[in-house]
Structure formats: structure tokens, C-alpha cells
Design a protein around this nucleic acid. Structure first.
Length: 293
DNA sequence: TTAGGGTTACAG
DNA sequence: CTGTAACCCTAA
């Protein structure tokens, strides 16, 4: 592991993660302009931020860039040298390249837009299950699982997959969760869809994944305070909207991270930052409510 | 200004 | 010597 010149501190790294989480991937000028982030990242340029973010995502995955690139170079060199005796090599490197690329895409830029809807196969099956079951108050996980198991070939990890998917769909407002039961979200009421992530966040305190392995929480505390102070200067409506939006985004990020955790542990950092920010948002929202109401 | 390729400095 | 992280250069 590495050797630095001007090594990034945990503070700077945390600030970068929080900045990307809030402003989106690639808004480095914006992140740097943010009053609170700029204090920590004062000595870093936008290019530095970009490079650091690249390094974080790259090394978190399968040694992405240089390895893939070096692999390619090696392949080409080998091919040039060996071209007569073909069939020997050239197999493993292509796999490496493909892996790196797909993973890079999966954890690349989609954070900025906030709402994205690929609507995978499982999503459709899930919605079909709920609608077909027609249970009055919605269906719980077990019923949905049973329905899917009976009607489709059930993968062994269906349960876990289902839980993740449900959480994701609730987070982005497709589903509404009420008392362990899931129902299709009515398109008319936006407020309910916006409230559900908050409720979900309230009820979720298990959190099996890793807590701070590094000094992330230490420095992010300052980030939390910063967000809090920033939100106090907002109006109640602004704070509530910002908090709800932040929590929803964080919820999606967390769900995505958990979903991706099986194959790549890359999104962990984002999930960590998302959790921090969600906490800050929730805290700010509550504080605001207590102050004003 | 940003995304990438490329280079340099340093740890293992 | 090799791999990695910070740094540099340049096209879009």
C-alpha cells in the first residue's frame, strides 16, 4: 500500500467523500467552493480531488486502472512477441479488463442524478408479486418471497436479494412500507414517498456492516456539525426538504452499497459518507422541528 | 474545468 | 524491482 508525497489525511478524504455525496461525482469545483469543505481541502486543487477520488474508487476495486492498463500493455507486448505461437496466452487479462470496466461503471457517476430507475427483472417480479397477491394492507417479505419462489426459479440468495431490493424500492419511492408490509406507492402523493425513507431510517438501527475501520467518524463529526450549522441557517421548509432529500439519497446509496457489497466493496466509502450525512440530516431536521414547532 | 493517460516519488 | 498513490499534462 502506498507511499505518499503529500499524503491525503483522513480528514481530507472524509471531506472529499462527503462532498461527492452531496454535490455529485465530478463537481470538484463545487465541492472546493463549498465553505466547509474548502476549509479542509484548502491545500488541494480540483484536479487533486479528482485524482484522489479516482484512486479511492480504483484501489477499492480490483486494482482497476493501472492493472487493467498494464495488463493490456502486457498483452499487446506479448502478442507482438509471441504472435506466431498464438494459443498459449491472452486469456486471463481480458477478464481483468472486463471486470474493472464493469465495476467502474457500477460505482461511477450515477450518484449525481439522484434518482435512477433501471427496473431490473427482480423489480418487475417483485411488483407483480405485490399486485397479484392483492393483500389489503400490502404484503410482507415472507409472502412476496413465497410467491416468487412458487412462480419462478428461486435463487438461493433470494431472501437477501429481496430484502435489499425492497429497501431500495422503498428508498426511491416506488414502494411504501407500512408495518412490515409493502405496497405499491401511489403516484399522487409525493409526501408519503418522501416520508418513508425517514421512517425507514428511524426503524433501522441494526447495521451489520463495518463501522469505522479508519478514522472516518472522527473527522466526519466536523462534517456533521458543519451540515447542522448550515441547516440552521435555512428556513424550516428548506431544512426539511434538504434533509428529506439527503436521507432519501443516502438510503439509496446505502442500499446500493449493500447490494454491491457481495461483488465489490467499493461503495463502502460512499455508504459510510451517506450514513454520516443521513445522520446529520436527520439530526438537523429534528432540531429544526423542536426549535420551530 | 474535467476525464483520462502518463509520470514521479515512495513503500514493500 | 514492482505496486501504489500523488502529481502532471493535455484533449475535449
Amino acid at each position: 500500500m502506498g507511499a505518499p508525497k503529500q499524503k491525503w489525511t483522513a480528514e481530507e478524504e472524509a471531506a472529499l467523500k462527503a462532498g461527492v455525496l452531496k454535490h455529485g461525482t465530478g463537481k470538484w469545483r463545487n465541492i472546493l467552493s463549498d465553505p466547509e469543505f474548502s476549509s479542509v481541502l484548502r491545500s488541494r486543487s480540483n484536479v487533486d480531488l479528482k485524482d484522489k477520488w479516482r484512486n479511492i474508487n480504483a484501489t477499492a476495486i480490483w486494482g482497476s486502472r493501472q492493472k487493467a492498463k498494464l495488463a493490456l500493455k502486457r498483452n499487446q507486448l506479448n502478442a507482438k512477441h509471441d504472435d506466431n505461437h498464438a494459443a498459449v496466452i491472452t486469456v486471463p487479462p481480458s477478464e481483468e479488463v472486463v471486470d474493472a470496466k464493469s465495476l467502474a461503471i457500477s460505482s461511477g457517476t450515477p450518484r449525481a442524478t439522484g434518482l435512477k430507475k433501471p427496473m431490473s427483472r427482480l423489480d418487475n417480479i417483485l411488483l407483480e408479486a405485490i399486485t397479484s397477491l392483492k393483500e389489503p394492507g400490502g404484503s410482507d417479505r415472507a409472502s412476496i418471497a413465497v410467491y416468487i419462489e412458487e412462480k419462478y426459479a428461486a435463487p438461493p440468495n433470494l431472501k437477501k436479494l429481496l430484502a435489499t431490493k425492497l429497501k431500495l424500492l422503498v428508498a426511491n419511492g416506488t414502494l411504501i412500507k407500512i408495518k412490515h408490509k409493502y405496497r405499491i406507492a401511489p403516484r399522487s402523493t409525493v409526501s408519503e414517498a418522501r416520508r418513508s425513507p425517514l421512517l425507514l431510517l428511524e426503524g433501522r438501527q441494526k447495521d451489520s456492516s463495518k463501522w469505522d475501520k479508519k478514522g472516518i467518524n472522527i473527522l466526519t463529526k466536523s462534517q456533521v456539525d458543519a451540515e447542522l450549522s448550515k441547516m440552521r441557517s435555512m428556513t424550516a421548509e428548506e431544512a426539511a426538504a434538504a434533509a428529506a432529500r439527503a436521507v432519501a439519497e443516502a438510503e439509496v446509496a446505502i442500499a446500493e452499497a449493500e447490494e454491491a457489497a457481495r461483488e465489490a466493496e467499493a461503495a463502502e466509502a460512499e455508504a459510510e459518507a451517506a450514513k454520516i450525512f443521513a445522520k446529520a440530516a436527520e439530526k438537523a431536521l429534528k432540531a429544526r422541528m423542536l426549535d420551530t414547532w
